[in-house]
Design a protein around this nucleic acid. Sequence first.
RNA 1: GGAGUGAUGGCCGAGUAGGUCGAAGGCGCUCGCCUGCUAAGCGAGUAUACGGUUAUAAGCCGUAUCGACGGUUCGAAUCCGUCUCACUCCGCCA
Length: 429
Amino acid sequence: MVTETMLDIKAIRQDPEFFRRGIARKKADPELIHQLLTMDESWRAALAEVERLKNDRNRASEEIAKKKKSGEDASESIRLMKDVSDRIKLLDETVREREAAVKDLLLSIPNVAHESVPDGDSEEDNVTLRHWGEKPQFSFEPKHHYEIASQLDIVDFERAVKITGSRFILYKGLGARLERALANFMLDFQTEKNGYQEMFPAFIANADSLVGTGNLPKFGEEMFRLEGLPYYLIPTAEVPLTNYYRDEILSIEQLPVKFAGYSSCFRSEAGSAGKDTRGLIRLHQFQKVELVKLVLPENSYAELDSLIEDCADILEALELPYRVVEICTGDLGSKETKKIDLEVWFPAQQTYREISSCSNFEDYQARRANLRFRRTETSKPEFVHTLNGSGLAIGRTLAALLENGQQSDGSVRLPKALVPYMGGIEIVN
RNA sequence: GGAGUGAUGGCCGAGUAGGUCGAAGGCGCUCGCCUGCUAAGCGAGUAUACGGUUAUAAGCCGUAUCGACGGUUCGAAUCCGUCUCACUCCGCCA
């Protein structure tokens, strides 16, 4: 059963002050905690009352059964219980309403950031942790990736708009080959070198799965929904991979689970009109190799570090300069406790752009997706911690390769690691 | 898409003239006994969630859960309705 619980209500009852401070760091209203606890109390009061009535009813039912068996008259008890049953029906409704209210409030409360996350108000306050690689020097004015792609005729922007619409593209010739080569290279790398299990999921997921990862109910407008069906195009392979063990209890030997999944990703990009409208940066459909880990709670921050390394490995193998950026509390999503972005260098724009995002959700998704493990055969199930990171977004990787590898004659030199995947082609021209 | 069958605990599998059924039995598993070792045998235990009590322990009390949701009833695994899924046959396709 998928729950819509986000945080542990028991933990909040236990230490409300901790959560007040925690959500204040994320720029949410600390008063929410008070509202939550008030509603929680009234829910529990109603629950206790209705459970007491049900207890009465169960007892009376036993009595009635006995009387009937021995031939006594039970009509008086039955008359009394009819009244009790009616009251239960009404109170049950109250309990349901208050429970729903508690869940709504819980959903509006963001996950508390890890103590190591830097304070900040916005993306301005994110902290660059390190840089890797030499930015390429050009003896000419470097072109934008979309200019290069158009001139080499490896991406057809105009006809893709005709066929589908804006923010869709079509890879052509060596562009299509490059897209395929990148997918194969990334999957081979993550499975052979970094020990992930390859997964190829359906690109459509049901509502329960999207609730499990936290895409629903709050972010439904960012996804494409199939008309008349409770199905959505997945915004990332994180959805099917994280939900793979939903409602299951794993044994401790199975952890950590490490999945690498290739998929198309569909984003409606509602509210991003006018942003990055050219090129491969912001599309309704792109391909990505996603890494997902299910891990022991005590290991999740070490696992986040290694996840970042696994993603950075790809950039290094592709000889792309990048930097590592720690997201501050004000820029952190409501679900993550800590997030590190990898940003790749785009010479034409003279800027770094996000190409991978690695996050720890602690037990946020596990709680929603009911993803648990047992330490021993007889111990109580506990929630795992879930993490994911892009390893990597293929469209943006392809764009970065074009810009960083461009030469004065308009051709593009490919990194050595990719050449075997391109059937020996070193230069795209 | 058409026709039919089914859905019970970790697994298998009883249970429909509604009544102490959270659910017989078996397997598996855990602990103990026994046994040169292993196997066999003997005994006990073995779901989850939520609420209450409590030390945020154990235990105890209560409520709910027999695919899901809703209904009938004092009372539903058992009756009725809707849905979902699985399997078989036909059709269609890659």
